[in-house]
Every structure is written in C-alpha cells, then in structure tokens.
Nucleic acid binder design. Structure first.
Lengths: 180, 180
DNA sequence: GTCTATAAAAAGATAGAC
DNA sequence: GTCTATCTTTTTATAGAC
C-alpha cells in the first residue's frame, strides 16, 4: 500500500472548490492548476484531459456516498432524522462533491448525471423500511433534495434562507412525525 | 402598443432551451444565434452583449413568476396543493425559465441568483397563512424545491424518478395533511 | 514528475456591407 | 435589421526541456 498521490488529490480539491464557488465555466484546467499550486502541464500529467479530470471527480463522489450511507446506517438518531441532518451539512466532503458533480451534470456530463442518480438510489434503499410508506419515503427524499437545492443557491453571492439550529431540529421532528 | 419584437423572443427562447438542455457552457452567443435562426451579428443587434442577453432572461423570469403567483392565488384547489402541482409542471414557460436562470446563477451571475431568491420569496409570501405553522411552510417549500432539483437531473440524459399521476396526487395529499 | 512554450480551436465582440 | 469578415482573448492540448 502506497500513500495517496497528494498532487492528484490537491487538484481534485481545487477543481471541486472552483466548480462550487464559481461554476463550471470558471473551472478551467488553467484555473484549477493555479488554484492547486501546479502548472497546467503538471495537472495534465496526472489527468490526461479535462474529461479525465471530471471522471476522477465522479469516482470520488461514488466512494464518499458509500461511506455516508454506511455512517447513516450506524446512526442512533434514526435513519430519517440522520439523513435530513446529513443533507444540511453543506460543509462536508460529500456535500461539496455532490454540488461539484451536479455542476458537471448540468453541463451535459452524462456520467455525472448517472452518478448523482446512483447516490440518490443508495439513499432511497437505505431509507426504505424506515418510513411508513412509499409516499413518505418520497417526501423525505424531496425535503433532502430541497435542502441541497437551497445550498446550491446559498453558495453563490446571495445568501438563501438556510434552515439551521433549532429550526432544523423542528423541521426534522415534523418530517419524522409525518413520515414514520 | 406595438407587437413584441419576435426575433428578440426567439433568441431568448433558444437561449433558454440550450441552457436547460445542454448547460451554460454550450449556451454560447454563436450557438444561441444559430438555434434561433439568426446570425451572431443579428443577435448582438438586439442584445448588445452576452450579459445583456442574460439580464433579459432574468427579467423574463420575474415577469413569469408574478403571473404564476397570481394564478395560484386564484386556484380553487388550495394554495399548498396548487403550488406543489405547479412545481412538477416542468414543461411550463416558468419552469424552463427557472431552470435556465439557475444555470446562470450557478455560474456566478449574481443578478440571476438574486432573482431566484425573489421568486422563492414570492412563493413563500403567497403560501404564508395557508399552512399550520412556519415549519410546515418550510416543508412545503422544500418539497417544491426538491421536485425542481429532480427536474434538473431529469432534463439531462439520464431520467430521474419523476413523481407523477396518481403518485403526485398521493404526495400532494400527504404534504397537505402534514402541513395544513 | 513538473515546468515553459506553443499550437489549434472556440469564445465574445466589433466593423462595415447590404 | 441582418449579414459576413475579422480581431482579441481564452481554452484545451501537445512538445520538449529540466
């Protein structure tokens, strides 16, 4: 077992950050390399092309998503509550990666779209049996999607209405009451 | 009162379509002009620059949103139900415009972000008083946002799980029951 | 592995004919 | 009003030095 290639990870981190903070158009090879502290040539040694860079980010998402589901299933709070809470944790590695990959998906990257869909199915499977019926399951997933959607807006210049603190607890309690 | 400038509207329609179907990066001045059946020079006669084109689309969103709220308030189905149903109607002019503007917002266009926020506030205001409390109001808005979020994925190559038909009616009934 | 330099294509914008 | 032609800058990618 060797140490992970640090330059590669730094480039993926920078790519993610620019995608989320400034959008897909700003996430050029040049800007990503500069932000990661390497040259364009250096970046293209690790990732042969722009699409290879994108594909590597999608792979990272799949890995993080599997870990997230495992953690929710170990949670003592209850799967529904843990899932909603996890959806609002916009700082986590999984969340920024989802946002970054959704930027790729929205620019026609089909692998990114398919991956986001798989992540949602992972969640759906892990929640099934924890809600009173299928409709309730869909409500939980939609509230979770809604939290993400607003996180997307929030990460732009204008802040969006975040649900947090006591309000988040109330929201979770209401969703749990309505769906389990 | 003169007739609306048809070429201008055709260009905005084409710009919207490309933004939604292929993403912001594909929505170049050149591609938009071609899709609208005019030349690049012709497009830039009506819109002095790319940002002017974007600004015009944001203006169109504001107009459509005001009309949507007025319609929901006239609805006999109840404001919550009418709003959720309206959120799933991904074919409407308002919906594609929201998706198009959200592509702009996600690429750093602050006016687009602010406009999406205003639209959400318009909805929030029009629903206030129609739910049992503030938490319930947030759930309605989040479910609605979640439906949009999935519509975004759905409009890419890979289809996402749409809630429709009888399932949509069940979802609406459950949300109404949980929030009003 | 990482760099600089450069090629090749695509982007936004302008000029001027019609 | 709408077009073609052209300019400038940016973007992806390659070549080759270190």
């Amino acid at each position: 077992m060797s140490r992970p290639p640090l330059a590669r990870e730094a480039v993926l981190d920078a790519f993610t950050r620019i995608l989320v903070d400034e959008g897909e158009r700003a996430a050029t090879v040049d800007a990503t390399a500069r932000s990661a502290g390497v040259s364009k040539g250096g970046l293209l040694y690790h990732f042969n092309s722009k699409s290879a860079l994108e594909a590597a980010l999608v792979e990272r998402l799949e890995k993080l998503a599997r870990e997230d589901v495992e953690e929710i299933e170990r949670s003592t709070e209850g799967a529904v509550a843990a899932h909603i809470r996890s959806s609002q944790n916009t700082g986590s590695a999984l969340d920024v990666t989802i946002l970054a990959v959704s930027r790729l998906a929205q620019n026609g990257n089909d692998a990114a779209t398919a991956s986001l869909r798989r992540v949602r199915e992972l969640w759906e499977e892990s929640l099934r049996g924890h809600t009173r019926d299928e409709t309730a399951l869909q409500i939980v997933l939609l509230v979770s999607d809604g939290l993400y959607f607003n996180a997307v807006l929030d990460l732009n210049a204008v802040p969006s209405p975040r649900v947090e603190g006591a309000d988040l607890d109330k929201l979770i309690a209401a969703v749990v009451a309505a769906t389990t």
